Amino acid sequence: MSSVTPVPVDPRAEQAPRTTLSVVKAYVALTKPRIIELLLVTTVPAMMLAARGIPSPWLVLTTLIGGSMAAGSANALNCVVDADIDAVMKRTKSRPLAQHAVPTRSALIFGVVLGVLSFAWLWTTTNLLAAAMAVGAILFYVLVYTMILKRRTAQNIVWGGAAGCMPVVIGWSAVTGEVAWPALVMFGVIFFWTPPHFWALAMKFRDDYAAAGVPMLPVVATPQQVAKQIVIYSWVMVAWTLLLLPATGWVYAAFALLAGAWFLVFAHRLNSAVRKGEPNNPMKLFHLSNSYLTLVFVALAVDSALSLPVLGLPF
């Protein structure tokens, strides 16, 4: 896979935006707030399961602040490394560095400072384990996924997506000071959720990824192969959610089964349409995947607050 042709530097690239508000908006955009929102949705339920109830509101707040800074750091540094790709892809060409709204050096400093602050904040307000794992997630996302995997292999999002699974483990460790098996199961749920989520998006924007030289699976494989892989990962994801049943109650069990069946129906519909050469819209599955993950983890939070474990197995 050839590397992306460098984007010519605009003479205005190092000029700051004219207003304070535009500066703030540009730096906030570097952190990709919508991605952070989804990560936080999974963190709070993980903390509630770890506490078997409602943890300290202060602990939840400090963990979310530290997690947001860590995710913002990773996303900002990702924008720095991927500025050439973002400028080529229609979906990302409005990002700050692609639009020269933020100087590259400033974005780099911003990302590093956020990472340092997240470590210091989490260490001070939670514990060293949570802080160290936050830094590990940043480094993995930037160095392993963005700089190594993304431009070299169609399995980029499979293994690179592990960084996005870390918030649940960080949230668990913030409460307990350790990592137990339910945290690893939640990690696995998000790990297996990531490929169907991103491959559905990549099916829609296949030409974008191809133009940018990014070997996402839909770029290097046939639509039929991609749809089949989405179905396989979807089944593993739904099955994996059931591994939490020994530590959860009936509320979670019911929603994990119902939401899982809902997701599988859409995954199979996409696969069937692609296999038959019929019109299809993979973005339906992409948007559904966000709703699915939110629903499962909200059910986990409610279950943790209200229910007793089905089997009562210890953590």
Rank of each mutant, 00 (worst) to 15 (best):
N281W: 07
Y233E: 15
G213H: 10
S291R: 13
Y209I: 00
N271Q: 13
L270F: 14
D208V: 06
W181K: 07
L264C: 05
A227H: 00
P246W: 13
T241V: 05
V231I: 04
K276F: 06
L244Y: 07
A183Q: 06
T222C: 10
M216N: 02
M283V: 05
A247C: 14
P218Q: 06
A211S: 13
S289C: 05
F191N: 00
M216L: 05
A221Q: 13
T194I: 12
L245P: 11
G249H: 02
A253W: 07
P246V: 09
E278R: 15
V179I: 11
I230F: 02
V185H: 00
V251Y: 03
R269Q: 14
T248F: 10
W193Q: 06
W181Q: 11
A202T: 03
T194M: 04
F205W: 14
T241D: 00
E278L: 15
P223I: 02
Q224E: 15
V185K: 01
P182A: 09
W181V: 12
V226C: 11
F286E: 13
K284D: 08
F191H: 01
A273E: 12
W199V: 02
L257W: 08
M186Y: 01
Q224V: 15
P218N: 11
Q224M: 14
A267H: 10
A247F: 15
Q224N: 12
V231T: 08
F187A: 14
G260S: 05
A273G: 02
K228C: 11
Q229W: 13
Y209C: 02
Q224A: 15
V219K: 03
V226H: 10
W199P: 05
G249S: 04
L270S: 06
T222A: 12
P215I: 01
G260E: 04
M186H: 00
K284M: 07
